[in-house]
Structures are given as C-alpha cells and as structure tokens.
Design a protein around this nucleic acid. Structure first.
Lengths: 171, 171
DNA sequence: ATTTTTATGTCAACATGTTTACGTAATTAT
DNA sequence: ATAATTACGTAAACATGTTGACATAAAAAT
C-alpha cells in the first residue's frame, strides 16, 4: 500500500471523527437550548418530540405506545415514563384501541393540543429561527437529506430497527 | 399578509420541524448503535468522546475538567461522573497542574492510549464505514459544515457558552 | 380448545444529561 | 493583608436514554 493511500485513509478517519463529534455536540446543545427555550411551559425537547409526533395527521386519532417508540427511535420502557409525565400534566391521554384490546392508543388531550398550537409555537418558531440562522431553504433541504441518509445507515446498523422495518414492510 | 406568504411560512416551519426531528432521531441512534459498536470494550459513546478528546495534540499533556466540559459541551458535574468511571477503569488519570494547584489535569493513562489506538480503532472505523455508507468525501465535508454552522447558532442561544467563548476570546 | 405470539406494564440497574447549591482551597485583585 | 474570584468536588433532584426480566391479558395460530 502506498504512502498516499495511508494519508488518504488517515484524512478520511479525521473527517469522520470530526463529523460524529459535531453530531454529538449538536445533540447536547439541541437538548440544552431547546429545553431552555420551552422552559416557560416546563416542556423538554423529548416531550416536545412526543407532542409533535402526536399532532401528525397519521397519529391524530391515537397511536400505540410501541409504534410511537419505533417512530421516535427510543425504547418502549423509556417512552412509558415520558408519557406518564405528560399524562400527569394532562397533555396526553390513553384510550383502549377498539380494534385490539391489548393496545392502548396515546393521543393529545384538548389541553395538550391547545398548548402545542397556541402557546408553544411562539417559542418553537423563535428557536428554529435562532438555530437555523444563516440557513437558506436549500441548506435546510440538503441538511435534512444528509440526516435522512445517515438515519437509514444507523437503522441498518441496529438489529431491532431493521427487523421492525422489515416487519412494517411485510404488513 | 398574502396567502402565499402564509403558505411559505407554513412550509418553512414544516421543514424546520423535520430537520430537528431528524437531528433528534440521529442523536438517539448515534448513542444506541455507537455504544453497541464498542460493547466489546464496555465503552459508551460519551466515554468515546472523552477518550477521543484526550488524544488531541492540544490535550495530550492533560486538560482541566472545566476546559474539557466546555469543549464537549456538557456540564462539569456530568463530566465528573464520566471521568470517575473512566478512572476506575484505569483509562484516565488526574494530575495536579504545576502552574495552578487548584486545577487537576485529566489525561490518558498508558492503558487508555493503548485501548484507543490498538483496540477501539477497529470498531470505530467499522462504525464510521457503516454510518457513512454512501457518503462521498464532499458529502462529509458539507455535512460537517452544516453541523458547524448549527453549533455556532446553538452556542449563540446558550448564555453560558457565549460568555465562555467571550472569556476565551479575551484571553 | 390449547398453544403461541403479541402489546403493554412494571421493576431494576445503569449511564448520561440538566439544574441548583454548598464547601474548600488556591489564585488574583484591591 | 484582606477580599473577591476561580477550579474543583460533591450532593441532590430530576428527565432521558439503555438493557434485561417477568407478569398479564388479548389475539392469533394450531
């Protein structure tokens, strides 16, 4: 193997190193600044993610805990605690699935939907504006594209996510 | 305000929503798959970040806990626990700073450096290859650029990080 | 009808992240 | 010299994330 190949390999490794370290830093800051942005409402970025998911048209009539965990890419056990905290705040509720009595459907309460639409949107759009300062629409689309692509790779690395995907594809 | 303006604004919000949700998902998967990749060595992604930071030329002779926390963008209290676990594993050590007796410098032990160089690199390069499948060198550079840019915005949103930056700039 | 699978709940142990707060010791500023 | 600041350790309380394990009840397969 030539010297240049070695150098190229070392450069590639340094590039990857930097990339994932930046991702790690961004993740830390996302949660730190995001939670602070919604401090007035006592909502964390994770709760934000749950509430946002529940406003999706597909989940509007309720979603099973397991499906929500698959969607958010967190564990069922972790999500259970998150949901119980949101339930205690009166923002979400559980209803038994008419089609499957084993399944409880999580959905927003009227209070939860109101909080999301009328109160949180002010801080959320402010946060978006701050965190995406200097990003053109094209930049945003490109970044989303890269994150999408990386996410697919991550899922391929995760045995559970892969089988869950296959299961979903087989339905 | 015209109807098109409203639509543009809604589209922008949907775009930002998707972007940060992807970032949230990528962060979850980074820790899940990254920790699993290094499972054989009992190293988590956070410990990985610490060890990686300590191999930087600037930190090779040791770095103060506070400076390391600033660099990793985590709190000092959190880092203390992380370091004590790495210390218990014999991977890092603390030494008193000759220039400032208040300050303890964290640095890799011989064991730690050996683990990083001889053992972890195999799994790390495998993880990089998997998570960046389909990414050209240009893609990686562009993604790093976007993450860098977003990180700067996050820091601007964080009162502490901003003051720390200013403090550093003033030195 | 009986067995197996599935969905959820729950408990436990652990690592990571936050914040607030207090003590101590060393340095720096006055 | 005295006072203020700085660096660290440490503790507590909390929210998030992981894994593993076990119980239960309903659905699905045999």
């Amino acid at each position: 193997m030539g010297k240049e190949d070695e150098e190229t390999r070392a450069m590639q490794a340094a590039l990857s190193n930097r990339l994932f370290f930046r991702l790690y830093q961004c993740a830390n800051m996302l949660h730190k600044t995001g939670t602070r942005a919604l401090d007035r409402h006592g909502i964390t970025t994770q709760q934000w993610a749950v509430l946002g998911a529940l406003t999706r048209p597909a989940f509007e009539r309720g979603v099973a805990v397991g499906d929500l965990a698959t969607f958010l890419l967190v564990s069922r056990q972790n999500l259970a605690g998150l949901i119980s905290r949101l339930e205690a705040q009166g923002l979400v509720e559980k209803a038994v699935d008419a089609a499957d009595n084993r399944s409880r459907l999580i959905r927003l309460t009227v209070t939860g939907r109101k909080l999301w639409q009328d109160d949180m949107q002010v801080e959320i759009s402010g946060f978006y504006a701050g965190a995406l300062q200097g990003f053109s629409t094209d930049d945003r689309i490109h970044l989303i594209h890269y994150l999408d692509k990386m996410l697919k790779n991550f899922k391929a690395l995760d045995p559970e996510a892969t089988s869950a995907e296959e299961k979903q594809a087989a339905e």
